[in-house]
């Protein structure tokens, strides 16, 4: 199977590191390939979260996933923020640093939402330039996640998958491919999720995300508060066939259950991986 451009390792199965599970993880040392941390939760705290992160990082590989890089914002790069992200990456030995293809605010404000971009040549050019600047500051490639979105812009001149693929190539960055987000956006905007998957440059993909969502009838919200639905599992299988095996994270960020529930969910991904690997052999 194909690997990624930077030979970043396939870490296997991972879960997001959440306060509720800290004690269990240290005492039980569950069988997992890695933990993903929410970058912003660990940038400015010297207390309990920091203590547990340091202990857990001694036993497991860590990857970082942020929500404030705002690569598509017309505001300039927040260099202080990037410096803090870099420092945290060095402290934890994080194998990669990721964020989203989105913007979160302008005029110095932060809405703390992952807001959609118009897929135009202007926004592509702008985002490529910002990602390159951020990567120079980080001194490593940035890994960007395809967003889940709830509206589309009339001026968009290309589909999202083309924007994401061109961004990755022109900025020379990595991709965190969120299979649930493809499913959510495909429903919300009426496109074929398989077409999205088939258009993604495999060598750019460093990690996968899987998650649950909330179906509202008229639209789906990316809520990360439930099990992964069957159609998303099917798309995950197709993604592995198209792109290859990659570190796979199960996102469960709201209504967080006991650790074992989340663990059982991510182990399902393991069965899909085994199946697809056997098929490819």
């Amino acid at each position: 199977m194909k690997s990624n451009r930077w030979q970043l390792p396939d870490l296997g199965l991972g879960i997001g590191l959440r306060t509720r599970h800290f004690t269990h993880i240290l005492s039980e040392q569950p069988e997992l390939g890695f933990f993903e941390i929410l970058t912003e939760n660990f940038l400015d705290t010297g207390g309990r979260p920091s203590f547990f992160l340091d202990r857990i990082a001694e036993h497991y590989p860590i990857v970082m996933h942020g929500v404030s890089m705002s690569v598509g914002s017309s505001d300039p790069v927040d260099r202080d923020y990037v410096a803090k992200v870099k420092a945290l990456a060095e402290r934890t030995g994080a194998l990669w640093v990721s964020d989203h293809v989105c913007w979160t605010g302008v005029l110095g404000r932060n809405t703390h939402d992952l807001l959609p971009l118009p897929y135009t040549e202007e926004s592509l050019r702008h985002t490529v330039a910002k990602v390159r600047e951020i990567q120079d500051l980080l001194e490593r490639p940035l890994v960007l996640e395809n967003p889940s979105t709830y509206l589309e812009f009339v001026p968009s001149a290309m589909p999202e998958w083309e924007f994401v693929a061109r961004l990755a190539e022109e900025a020379d960055c990595g991709l965190l491919f969120d299979v649930n987000n493809v499913y959510v956006s495909a429903f919300n905007h009426g496109f074929d999720p398989v077409a999205y998957i088939d258009a993604i440059p495999a060598e750019r993909v460093c990690q996968y995300h899987l998650a649950g969502h909330m179906h509202k009838g008229t639209h789906i919200l990316d809520t990360h508060n439930d099990h992964v639905v069957d159609p998303v599992w099917e798309l995950y299988g197709h993604t592995i066939r198209q792109v290859g095996l990659r570190a796979t994270l199960l996102e469960w960020d709201a209504d967080i259950p006991e650790f074992e529930v989340v663990h059982r969910e991510v182990l399902k991904a393991g069965r899909w991986r085994e199946r697809e690997a056997a098929h490819a052999a």
Binding site: H112, D113, F153, V154, N188
Partner: peptide, 30 residues
């Protein structure tokens, strides 16, 4: 309507309203 497309089930204003509603909810949670 010149900026935001309708979806198969939502008007442009309803699509914008999704983000608008989530903003306050997020601030309240924080």
């Amino acid at each position: 309507g010149e900026l935001i497309r309708p979806s198969h089930s939502l008007s442009p204003a309803e699509r914008v309203e999704i983000y608008h509603g989530m903003y306050l909810m997020r601030m309240v949670e924080a």
